[in-house]
């Protein structure tokens, strides 16, 4: 087929495009992913007994803000990386801000604590399972977000996959807040971050195979 014939073929029947395609696809993916992750949590882990009481603790809201701001920053990165030619600009820096703030808080907490208590503050009670549970909860989100991205046009596949992974990990961590009793800044700065980085690495590896178009 000659190129002019292909042009005719493509143009015939109109070029009207789906409107707000990015917002619609990611809203659907995140909603389905969050719902599935919440069901997983309810079925396998349950809601923490202290969840109601923890709502009164300011540190609970700091933890929620930490995870939620990472979710928002990675969503911005995902939206930009789904469009050819869109620049990331300040988005990577914005992604680093919540992590740096949590680390600063963690250092302050550790410095103020009695030296014998420091290891306990860092490890909490659940350090050995926390990253893996966050990673597990982010699996449905990663599947959904990579599906959404596949229908768009990422041109930097590894980076786009990593951003989709971080979005999935931070949404998974958000759901995990229902179960996890940990509120210490040193714990959140290490183990939550690790939990979110596992799907980030998975997304980066999967990106170049699943996102080609």
């Amino acid at each position: 087929m000659k190129t002019d014939d292909l042009v005719m073929l493509l143009a015939n029947g109109g070029g009207a495009a789906e409107r707000h395609a990015l917002a619609r696809r990611y809203a659907l993916a995140i909603a389905l992913g969050l719902a599935t992750a919440t069901l997983l949590l309810l079925a396998l882990l349950g809601v923490s007994h202290s969840f109601g009481a923890s709502l009164l603790s300011p540190m609970f809201w700091v933890k929620l803000g930490y995870v939620a701001s990472l979710a928002v920053a990675s969503l911005l990165a995902v939206l930009r990386l789904s469009r050819p030619g869109a620049r990331l600009d300040w988005v990577p820096a914005a992604t680093a801000v919540p992590v740096l703030l949590m680390w600063a808080l963690a250092v302050a907490v550790l410095l103020a604590a009695d030296p014998v208590q420091r290891l306990g503050l860092l490890l909490g009670a659940t350090w050995a399972v926390c990253p893996f549970l966050i990673a597990m909860l982010s699996v449905p989100l990663l599947v959904a977000n990579l599906w959404a991205m596949r229908g768009l046009a990422p041109t930097r596949l590894t980076l786009a996959g990593a951003a989709a992974g971080l979005l999935s990990g931070s949404c998974g961590a958000l759901v995990y807040c229902l179960h996890c009793p940990e509120l210490g800044a040193p714990f959140l700065g290490v183990w939550y971050l690790l939990g979110m980085l596992i799907p980030t690495a998975a997304g980066a590896l999967l990106g170049r195979y699943t996102l080609r178009w």
Binding site: V7, L10, A17, P84
Partner: peptide, 27 residues
């Protein structure tokens, strides 16, 4: 031809706030 088809299939990713050149060139 491959690029024309790709641009056609992914045309919903064009954002009117972005320069057309940047979008087409990236594809």
């Amino acid at each position: 031809q491959e690029s024309l088809l790709a641009i056609h299939n992914q045309r919903h990713t064009y954002d009117a706030d972005l320069p057309l050149t940047a979008w087409v060139h990236a594809i």
